[in-house]
Nucleic acid binder design. Structure first.
Lengths: 204, 204
DNA sequence: TTTGTTTTCGACACACCGTCGATTTTTCTA
DNA sequence: TAGAAAAATCGACGGTGTGTCGAAAACAAA
């Protein structure tokens, strides 16, 4: 969250904080429905009721806004990882975790898509996304390593590789969730549960 | 391949075709070592020995050059898919197919990375990449469907979903192949063989 | 040489970006 | 509540990259 804060501003709540919130608010809406390139800084500024130049008082760049927005989503996302704290396959917990995160993903589909685009040109945003993924992968790897140690999980693929595979499967499936129905969302979750169980625990 | 050809030019070989080749040549080099944004049309034109304006006589946009380059890579890629024509798990053929495509991916790592970036802003390029992926997924799905029909492969995940999963696993692993050693490349292939076999054929 | 086509490029208009400094508004405190 | 300090605003400017137009130059064929 700190990358997006310019150096000049102080901390307390003030009038300008309302504007910052207004920018974030309008940005969330615009990035949700247009592509990253199709949203200009002028659009954001006008939407927040200020001039383009004033925008720079609040954020240094366009991707910085996206970084601030994604920091929130990233936190929500991290809160849904109940399976990682369990022991053994526990497919019900895995299903619950995936359903929560899939719902979150669908709600923020446009924003996530824009942030993936913007990451190519913004080091801070790239860092945030990388960190989010790294945290997820590490928690997954820890859980898998534990299950491999007590023989529950098969060991012929290293735990951290399995964790990366799970991320990859999740991302690719979730990325087509924009505008999906609840039934489609549940199907996606069900496929992922089956695939992950099979990859990690092998023959059931 | 046709998206990249502007309307005005005729077909036969002529002086200008040399220039077109020169642009493609220098573009391949530049996109291999710099990021997509860091290569300007002026860079490409200068590199090919013409003015920026003349560039537009050969290609309508920057992504169009990338599209032309990617069409070639896409063809090479499609030629390496020996496993799809086999029956049953045949892990040796799968390994061979993955090794070939991984090598190709590593050779073109920079180009592939640029094209992924550019796809966000270029419909024709997006279409080419989509088509390449779709062809791959369809061939995979056909093979899997065949194996599911005769009971070799398990059927609790639909063939086309499995095909998408395979693409996703491959992409995520290959995308970290830039500058990898031969040993790392073989490790990647080995993990993928194990994972794919387990996903498609379940308990071995 | 003439004629028509291919190729080149300078000049222009555009869109967006980011900075600077002067000005206005808000906030705090004496 | 006046008046100073800090916060916030914005116009003007300069920069970069893009794409178009039309006139000129190089080239090929008759």
């Amino acid at each position: 969250m700190s990358q997006a804060t310019p150096a000049r501003r102080r901390v307390g709540p003030s009038k300008g904080d309302l504007r910052e919130a207004a920018i974030l608010h309008v940005a969330k809406r615009m990035f949700a429905e247009r592509s990253y390139e199709a949203v200009t800084i002028d659009d954001l500024a006008c939407g927040a009721g200020i001039s383009r130049t004033s925008f720079y008082f609040y954020f240094p760049t366009k991707p910085a806004v996206l970084t601030a927005l994604m920091a929130q989503v990233s936190d929500d996302f991290a809160a849904s990882h109940v399976w990682f704290d369990s022991a053994g396959p526990s497919p019900e917990l895995l299903r619950e975790q995936l359903l929560t995160s899939a719902t979150l993903w669908r709600e923020n589909a446009g924003l996530l898509s824009c942030s993936a685009t913007a990451a190519a040109s913004s080091e801070p945003l790239r860092a945030l996304l990388w960190q989010t993924k790294a945290r997820y992968d590490q928690r997954a790897a820890t859980k898998i390593r534990r299950d491999q140690a007590d023989g529950t999980a098969t060991g012929d693929i290293a735990a951290d590789r399995l964790a990366e595979m799970i991320s990859a499967l999740r991302d690719s499936r979730y990325n087509r969730l924009a505008g999906a129905t609840d039934a489609e969302l549940r199907d996606a979750v069900e496929d992922l549960v089956t695939a992950i169980q099979r990859l990690v625990y092998g023959p059931r």
